[in-house]
Design a binder for these strands. Structure first.
Lengths: 341, 341
DNA sequence: TTGTAGGCGTTATCAG
DNA sequence: CTGATAACGCCTACAA
């Protein structure tokens, strides 16, 4: 391994000077600087991050916790975070928390012991309080997809109410008036906020909110499946469904198929997230796009600013966007309505 | 930050002794050992990995390169590698190579400068030669899903021929005799090997290999789509299709839909990989399972063995497995055959 | 079994 | 603008 020492010798300067051109902090005369860089090139010198980290107590690394690395949701997010981190001279260590309280805590300890400068957390089981305490104890962290008032300037999250509104408004614009809603678990604020958007859109159109048109599901396919079945058993004549996320929509597709109905044609369906599957379902799913990449980038920007002890000027509330595909259509008289036989 | 020094003081021993109980290498008397651990507990001491790494030139970290972190394929793989690495006291730094030669090379440099002990590579653009040179220069690495004879004991790969055989055999067993095959890019050995398995199964059944039944596609949906269209235009009466991977199968589904045909009912379709989408397509896709998690685990085991300078006893060629779902069915006389109008 | 001393490759402090 | 010199926190001969 070629070290700073050899570079210094070849360039005929002190190690300190070489260090200066590496970090780029203090001033170095152009002439000596070029001598040093030339030496670095010919020696093919690469700074040893470990030594840098030890000496400067900065590791230039970011720790990240996600639910499950294999999930639809986290892949693109992690990708954008990693890419942007690397572009900014940092590396990323990702770990999965599995949505389990103890595992999430353990993961944080693990990352900290690895010397990361800061954390990007997508956690669900750790409590607000624990997070607040960590921040109080000096841990630099950014929280994804969750809002904690006390930590409002380190949370990056989506305007979920607006997303729910967008989805519902789209159906209303298509002429639907009997619009069902399948939410995720209602103890999650995401679910509640999206539902609130649904209510708002209805209200704005002068329609009454009917609680029978709402079913609480869970953010996975089974959740959508079960909720959709319950909804149909209620024998309502809805012509469209707003779903808490794309997985739920997938469950709805299945139930519709069981009733020989087609999404888009017979019943309009809107998802949420624009996960990869949204493009793979048939018909392709109209959904509300979760700006994953932007969120990843923002998260990195934010931790970098925190590391530099700058206060942020970033807009932390991200805006969702409606993506219209084939699962929603204008309401026509011929629309069949699902009924329990 | 509490250091080894303070622990030593509190325990009334030298730093060396503390270091010994941390690493657990040399012998320490039980009595002093317990004194030290007690001191570590009360001080809530956490070893500084960076300092350890610098002093011992072992970072207990693994670098990994994948194509694209957001992909179907890499998520589960990365997840299992990360999990298993962590269980063994290592952390993982993943980076994407984007299947681009220079980016892959850059990624390796990046990881090396980060002081990783070893690399797990899923790369496609870097040449065999470059890889061989790296190994020669002392870089410890394991290659995933690719076989290089000179590096045979550091390659973990799938028995692709057997996978192609399994898929085809399954269709033959169902009574199909006119079986088409859509491959991935034939410059990739995966594609060729799978195709070879297809030929072998046909031959074993006494059927003639017809090259018109084979179409070269690419490993994505469009590849499958285009190849399927070409195949249909050839006006052959095939009743089943073996696909190079699940994405291709998805393209086939689409083309079938265009012709008002259903996978499974009218034409049997077999995929390859058992990517997440296989379960999300309708009908669910019969496919050949790529043992991703096992491969991830094996990769970690292998690099750990290499770090310990042990020769391996692992079986590096992994065996695929047929997963039967709804896209394949017994051949009946009523099967409609796709024809060009 | 334990301790001493030197070093890992860099950065930080302080002079000059 | 540049250069000694002392950290950074830990490991590893070597010696006792």
């Amino acid at each position: 391994m070629v070290t700073i020492k050899e570079v210094a010798q070849l360039a005929g300067v002190s190690q300190t000077t070489v260090s200066r051109v590496i970090t780029g902090q203090s001033k170095v005369a152009e002439s000596t600087k070029s001598r040093v860089t030339a030496a670095m090139d010919t020696l093919n010198y690469r700074p040893n991050m470990l030594a840098q980290a030890l000496a400067s107590s900065r590791s230039y690394s970011i720790g990240m916790i996600v639910g499950h690395l294999g999930g639809f949701f986290y892949g693109p997010l992690t990708h954008s975070v990693e890419e942007f981190a690397r572009e900014n001279g940092h590396h990323l260590i990702v770990t999965s928390g599995e949505d389990d309280h103890d595992k999430e805590l353990e993961a944080i300890k693990f990352l900290l012991s690895r010397g990361v400068d800061s954390l990007i957390l997508h956690v669900s089981a750790i409590t607000d309080n624990e997070l607040i305490n960590m921040v109080a104890s000096g841990i630099k962290l950014v929280i994804l997809n969750r809002f904690i008032p006390e930590l409002s300037d380190q949370c990056i999250y989506l305007d979920n109410e607006y997303g729910g509104y967008l989805a519902t408004k789209h159906l209303l614009d298509l002429g639907h008036t009997k619009i069902a809603c399948i939410t995720g678990q209602l103890y999650k604020s995401d679910s509640r906020d999206r539902l609130q958007g649904y209510r708002k859109a209805l209200q704005e159109s002068g329609l009454l909110f009917e609680s029978t048109l709402v079913a609480e599901g869970a953010f996975d396919e089974d959740g959508g499946l079960n909720a959709a079945r319950r909804l149909i058993q209620r024998n309502l004549n809805f012509t469209a469904v707003v779903c808490g996320n794309d997985n739920i929509a997938m469950g709805v597709y299945d139930v519709l198929a069981d009733h020989e109905l087609n999404a888009g044609k017979d019943i309009s369906v809107v998802g949420y997230d624009d996960a990869i599957i949204a493009r793979y379902l048939r018909p392709k799913l109209t959904t509300v796009r979760f700006p994953m990449c932007e969120m990843g980038k923002f998260a990195v920007k934010l931790v970098l600013q925190m590391n530099a002890n700058k206060s942020t000027d970033l807009l932390l509330k991200m805006t969702p966007e409606l993506i219209i595909r084939g699962s929603t259509n204008k309401l026509t008289k011929t629309d069949s309505l699902p009924k329990e036989d």
